[in-house]
Design a protein around this nucleic acid. Structure first.
Lengths: 353, 353
DNA sequence: ATGAAAGCGCTAACAT
DNA sequence: ATGTTAGCGCTTTCAT
């Protein structure tokens, strides 16, 4: 009558015990069968699977996590879900993780205050994530510390930390950005501006450096007013372009730290009745889906979210599995590369004579 | 020496037992204190909290879920994370849920095959979500069945099901769409086209019906070629507009089932050298962030993701809590309303004489 | 108001 | 190869 006594009854959800008794084996055998561990004889294994099917049984992940110490949950922290780059990145990561039997704990809210970071870390810790991909491209050192102190493997983008549990994914921005600069130079541009991202983002700083060295290699003289701060948002791009518009010596082309910025630039140029690409060439970075549909379609530097997600997952997996196979050493922090490449569309053209 | 014996040692993460012994109380008292249940004397409570702080303790959610039967996880299924409407919706939902102590299990992948739905449902079931917000705006009846059979509360958008565990959020598309039609009529338009969404989406069907009744009320005669199928994607909008362009009797304005479609339309119009809004007025629906930055900025029908997220969360919470307070009856399926309203920007103007 | 103890559903020794 | 059993860390009766 009491709930406790219904254990072997047909009421409620099937138990590992329900399966065991239906298959006429011990619960250990059921567990082994499910986890594919130690050889279970074909005969019993078959009986077990059959019982599982028949009962529509699936294990209780909480019980499993509790006893095994493995949650099979991975955390992912992104910067700003408002930038379409990130949702696509999450979707890719999710697909890969789920295919490998991991669940995802996503933190998509805009991270601004330290308190918010605190909350996120807490959520991750409470749910016992086995690893976290920090794809904010920023310098959330405080996140790292807390998580690392708890021994949780991390993978970061563009930021190297001297800790065996932290892997870094290096993105080869240099090639894409060099291609972009060369593309512009070949078109005849000499006066190229750059709308930078937040200085707090490692990736934004890297992008900026790549721009500077690429233009240097091409022998371009970039006036410092042509390098203006933006913040990777639409409005930031618009404001940045407006600053450029106010300059005495105007650039004929502008490369943006990301696509959101570039879309803002397109908007500002249009308001100023400056024709793109005839009077101004614009290049973005990320290749978000919208870039094909801007007016004109945006020339941009492609960065594969799928490659990035893959690299992040693989890096995490290596660490997580090493942690669970005590025999193996922790692999040294690994670096994965993902590359970038120019995608020429219609926002670039020779400068007006 | 063995891991088991380290329990009361300072090694490793603090236990409820560690807290109990530090505070010189029983583990039951620690549990009660944390859960704010049954009165614990101020004196002990203080000691417990102090120990918790000192040890930086937090409870193991898996153990908690296992024994209490409550996971404090809510599922959310969205249609297509590529449409910026959804990430913003997720972010809002996450913020609200986390503020109420729930974790989120997001399914962001594009749902296409039945197998994918199967996987999602399985993930939700395995992690023992307490409720699921199905914001696909679609007709995933199969999802519903499985989840409902397991007694999990659901909240759907735009689709009513006769089941006490399923709530519906009704969105008042009628007012926004009526405003849009009237706006166009006031501008002098009589020939208004409509780019519809997938017929499998309840919300898309509702939007279409609202368009039809609004134009009827205004005494407009809408040729059936002006109502063309699209699919809520950028490319779909582009293709739909191209069809409209091929018509002998062309419309002077087009209302789109969502903003993605409208952005596609803008693109197609530009390619056809049709000036917006001078030669064609365009209206979208959703008010995603990009609409302020399209060329020209898009007039659209605003639908608050925050209101929607709020309604979805509240509906779920009512159900979930009723389930955990055996005294109460299950409330009847509740209906929450969220409204829509026209946001006039620059993609609409009087038709050319 | 507080504590002792049972047991949530499972995995992993340890036996056999 | 299979079964028995001791917990994983917590909540929740049930005593006191």
């Amino acid at each position: 009558m009491s709930p406790r006594s219904t254990r072997s009854t047909s009421t409620g959800k099937p138990d590992i015990r329900t399966v065991a008794s239906l298959a006429r084996v011990s619960i250990a055998t059921v567990s082994r069968t499910i986890n594919g561990s130690s050889a279970v004889s074909d005969k019993l294994s078959k009986r077990v699977w059959q019982a599982i099917e028949q009962l529509n049984y699936f294990p209780n992940t909480h019980a499993r996590s509790l006893v095994s110490g493995r949650s099979r949950i991975l955390g992912i922290i992104v910067e700003n879900i408002t930038n379409p780059f990130f949702p696509e990145l999450i979707a890719s990561f999710e697909e890969i993780a789920v295919a490998h039997g991991y669940e995802l704990l996503v933190s998509s809210g805009n991270i601004q205050s330290a308190a918010q970071i605190e909350t996120i870390v807490r959520r991750m810790l409470e749910r016992k994530v086995e690893g976290v991909a920090v794809l904010t491209f920023g310098s959330e050192e405080s996140v790292l510390d807390q998580l690392v102190n708890h021994g949780i493997p991390l993978v970061l983008a563009e930021f190297e930390v001297n800790n065996p549990r932290v892997s870094t994914i290096l993105i080869d921005y240099a090639s894409g950005i060099r291609e972009a600069v060369e593309h512009l130079v070949n078109l005849g541009h000499r006066k190229i501006a750059y709308l930078a991202g937040p200085h707090t983002l490692h990736s934004a700083e890297t992008r900026l450096h790549c721009f500077e060295s690429s233009t240097a290699v091409c022998g371009l003289r970039i006036r410092k007013e042509w390098i203006v701060d933006a913040d990777h948002t639409l409005k930031g791009g618009e404001a940045g372009m407006q600053r450029l518009l106010g300059l005495k010596e105007r650039p004929t082309a502008v490369i943006c730290s990301n696509d959101m910025t570039a879309i803002g630039v397109l908007h500002a140029a249009h308001q100023a009745r400056l024709a793109v690409p005839e009077e101004l060439s614009v290049i973005g970075l990320d290749d978000i889906a919208f870039t094909e549909f801007t007016l004109p379609p945006l020339t941009t530097i492609g960065l594969s979210r799928h490659a990035l997600a893959r690299a992040a997952f693989d890096a995490l997996r290596v660490q997580v599995e090493a942690l669970n196979e005590p025999g193996e050493h922790m692999p040294n922090q690994r670096r994965f590369e993902v590359t970038t490449t120019l995608i020429a569309r219609e926002s670039t053209a020779p400068p007006k004579a």
